[in-house]
Amino acid sequence: MASESSDEGGNGYEPKILVFACNWCSYAGADLAGVSRLQMPANCRIIRVMCSGRVRPEFVVTALSKGLDGVLVLGCHPGECHYSEGNYFTRRRGLLLKNLLQFVGIEPERFQVRWVSASEGAKFADTVEQVTEQIRALGPNRPQGGMHSTEPGDR
């Protein structure tokens, strides 16, 4: 388990996964997983947003086109959004985005949307485990050139 190298090659490749977690449910769920000392693969990096509805599709496309292996968006369960309906936008946008990814030649499985509440530390850990394994099975993401999105600072 304690592989000394996280680089590609060696005894296998370690996917790098970007996670967006909403402040109220999923980030708190991730905190609870930590407080509960639930052990999980170390492939995810969380960016905290106030609501999953903040995640612009461009972020997902940018991340994948820059070579990250997967993007996971986590929000409150439908009907439980702290802002009433932000996660409904996430859900609809997610479906469209998967189509778009397929169209541009990126495996749509590299992008996933899941719901984790503040009390679901165990579900957070399970989700990280499952998604990591699914993305690991896809192998390294090798984006085609020419579809880089805006660089930070362009705006």
Binding site: M1, S3, A30, A33, A42, I46
Partner: peptide, 16 residues
């Protein structure tokens, strides 16, 4: 966050 999201959930893998 390198405690809840890192040291506490990867206790057996200091390198990672």
């Amino acid at each position: 966050n390198i405690r809840e999201h890192c040291s506490w959930v990867h206790m057996h893998d200091p390198a990672m």
